[in-house]
Simulated assay, not measured.
Amino acid sequence: MGLIEYLSRDLGAKVVQTHASWVLITPDVVYKIKKPVNFGFLDYSTLEKRKENCQKEVILNRRLCPNIYLGVVPISLVDGRYMLEDDSNVVEYAVKMKRIPEDSLLINRLPRTTQEDVRMVARLLVDFHAKAERRDEWGRLEVMEFNTDENFVQTEKYVGITIEREAYNYIKKRVEEFYTKYEDIFEKRIREGKIRDGHGDIRLEHIAFLKEGVCIFDCIEFNDRFRCGDVINDMCFLSMELDFYSRRDLSEAYEEEYKKLSKDEDFDLLLNFFKSYRAYVRGKVYSFMLDDPQVEDKEKYRDLARKMFALSLEYTKRMP
């Protein structure tokens, strides 16, 4: 019997899979075990790398979610049995977390979420970004160009499937024009300390409203390039998702609060550029699902990708 099958039966746990992890969910705690995979941008191929990334995940996520991440625990194979939190013959590691109630997640409480709720999130993020480590090297123009060029290369095969040629060409052209026109802004952002070690994945499903306050969890630990960058790029992922779910009232309140408290003079200039980038990335990710043989409902992801690319186009048209 394999590790996941054994532990899920032993714990009576529900198992949820992602492309990179197995998540074992019990009534009170969750164990997240990384798969031995290497996707290039993510490398969990050895036990040592999985241990290192588990440790990094706990340290980074405690910044915005201090009470949920309990630590990294070893898993040993002893006399043919897999033993959690045993270090006698370690064969794997897991991140141990308190279970977050499903109804506390922003994605599940969106209909009853208020403007004050998202202002709380904005206040938390302004403080977080102010204290986060400066990572100037990730703010260079060529880094952002690499990210957007990568997106365009990887999505060209989906032209005519999830994005129309006209939209693809327009977004690409406007992004290149933005770089040419505002090249100096990227250097200015670095000088002013606006490039920080952020979260990288501030989405509706990663925000929980708990008794002890707002918790933003599941940050990107596996690749610094996806986590570190401009603070507006970090915060606006949530704006984009709120827009996607037709809660523009919430995204506006969130953006206004962040802008007011951060006193960021480049906010209006950069907001739609970064929102377009975030929507395009999600369109790309949903498009990738069409090539995954394990994904059954291809039409669902085709529709989601089309909607994300359409949103990216809308933001691009609003760019200065």
Score class of each variant (00 low, 15 high):
residue 179 Y to W: 13
residue 305 A to C: 09
residue 90 V to D: 06
residue 134 R to N: 05
residue 4 I to A: 11
residue 218 D to I: 00
residue 214 V to R: 03
residue 159 V to N: 07
residue 117 D to S: 06
residue 130 A to D: 10
residue 316 T to S: 14
residue 254 Y to L: 11
residue 212 E to Y: 01
residue 213 G to L: 04
residue 84 L to I: 15
residue 88 S to I: 06
residue 227 R to I: 03
residue 192 E to R: 13
residue 152 F to R: 04
residue 298 K to Q: 07
residue 133 E to C: 02
residue 198 G to A: 12
residue 84 L to E: 06
residue 192 E to N: 15
residue 178 F to Y: 14
residue 88 S to C: 05
residue 264 D to K: 01
residue 166 E to G: 03
residue 170 Y to I: 06
residue 181 K to F: 00
residue 186 F to P: 01
residue 316 T to V: 14
residue 253 A to V: 12
residue 156 E to K: 15
residue 175 V to Q: 12
residue 190 I to A: 07
residue 135 R to S: 10
residue 241 E to V: 10
residue 219 C to A: 13
residue 91 V to E: 10
residue 274 F to T: 06
residue 199 H to L: 11
residue 29 V to G: 00
residue 244 F to K: 13
residue 87 D to W: 09
residue 138 W to H: 12
residue 319 M to N: 02
residue 142 E to S: 13
residue 66 P to Y: 05
residue 211 K to Y: 11
residue 78 V to G: 04
residue 296 E to P: 01
residue 159 V to K: 10
residue 232 I to P: 01
residue 148 T to S: 12
residue 152 F to T: 04
residue 99 R to V: 01
residue 187 E to R: 15
residue 234 D to M: 11
residue 70 L to R: 08
residue 250 L to F: 11
residue 203 R to F: 08
residue 63 R to V: 06
residue 162 T to V: 06
residue 148 T to P: 09
residue 105 L to W: 03
residue 265 E to I: 11
residue 225 R to T: 09
residue 99 R to T: 03
residue 265 E to F: 05
residue 55 Q to C: 13
residue 183 E to H: 11
